[in-house]
């Protein structure tokens, strides 16, 4: 299956620079930040993911697309071991995080350690019913940060990183849930950024937002690529085309095709991918 090809193979196929990527045309792809190797996942007896092997390139946006129920969110939630919160779930295979070669799915690796390195933004904005400041600072607080100046600096930097600072700087101590939907989602992004994660996971981050808020989040994701590696699940193919450098098409728990986004959208190798992209299916 093409999807199993190693990252080096992708390099030979690159026709041009991914949108927004720093690398000049024809150069080697950016180094790997993580790699899923033969990952299978079971909800009880149901196998939701079937032996997925896929690279995640550093400082790039990788989009996971596919019809509902294809396992894209399940796959994403393996990267921060969210499935460990619920009984009856089982992983097989590994997700290796570089450069230290840690297998995130290893039983000996604490899921809390994984979540400290891999942060997440959810489908529905889920700010805590606390102040804007405390929302952003929470990740630092669980890491034991008590220094007021450090917290202040980090909160400001994260809110700036999430393009929210100018809108909320005068009311940091107001409740976060009073913000608009798009602002709440940017607050959640700031919360995820505050702890300097290595990978940031987005699970359909704009599906609850209006088009204007969606545009601002997409713009933000393109910006954030400079500082963090991004994996995004989206059911909106235009969004995948707009924000991502790489795209993975999944169907029924399998990775059908993984490639540079422009290749997936303009010259997919698999007929299934083409059918989905062109709207004949899904």
């Amino acid at each position: 299956m093409e999807a199993r090809t190693q990252p080096t193979t992708h390099a030979t196929m690159l026709g041009r620079t991914p949108p927004g990527a720093a690398a000049p045309a024809g150069s080697a792809p950016p180094p790997l930040k993580a790699e899923s190797r033969g990952l299978s996942f079971h909800y009880g007896k149901f196998q939701a993911l079937k032996s997925i092997t896929m690279p995640v390139h550093e400082h790039r946006v990788t989009a996971l697309i596919g019809p509902s129920g294809c396992g894209k969110s399940t796959f994403l939630r393996c990267f921060n071991r969210m499935h460990d919160l619920y009984p009856g779930n089982r992983y097989e295979g590994e997700i290796v995080l570089y450069p230290d070669n840690t297998n995130l799915l290893d039983r000996d690796v604490d899921p809390i350690e994984v979540r400290m390195r891999v942060s997440m933004v959810f489908q529905k904005p889920n700010p805590f019913p606390k102040s804007i400041y405390e929302n952003v600072a929470y990740g630092l607080r669980v890491r034991g940060v008590k220094n007021r100046n450090l917290l202040d600096d980090k909160v400001e930097a994260s809110l700036r990183g999430a393009a929210l600072w100018d809108e909320v700087k005068g009311r940091l101590h107001e409740v976060g849930s009073n913000l608009s939907g798009g602002q709440q989602q940017r607050l959640c992004i700031a919360r995820a950024l505050a702890t300097d994660p290595e990978i940031l996971l987005f699970d359909e981050p704009t599906s609850a937002l209006d088009p204007i808020a969606t545009a601002s989040i997409e713009e933000l994701i393109a910006e954030l690529r400079r500082q963090v590696t991004i994996l995004i699940v989206t059911h909106n193919m235009q969004q995948a085309a707009r924000v991502s450098d790489y795209t993975a098409y999944m169907y029924l728990g399998e990775l059908i095709e993984f490639d540079r986004t422009d290749t997936i959208f303009f010259k997919p190798r698999r007929k299934e991918t083409e059918d989905y992209i062109t709207g004949r299916f899904g």
């Binding site: 969210m82 979540r115 400290m116 942060s119 997440m120 889920n126 805590f128 607080r141 669980v142 995820a192």
Partner: peptide
């Protein structure tokens, strides 16, 4: 308490006790 709030706390690396103390009990 909505599941996404709980998941939000775990997602930034909170332990079970931190989640209970900072979120579950107050909410």
């Amino acid at each position: 308490i909505p599941g996404v709030i709980r998941e939000g706390a775990y997602a930034v690396g909170a332990t079970k006790w931190q989640t209970v103390r900072d979120h579950i009990v107050p909410y």
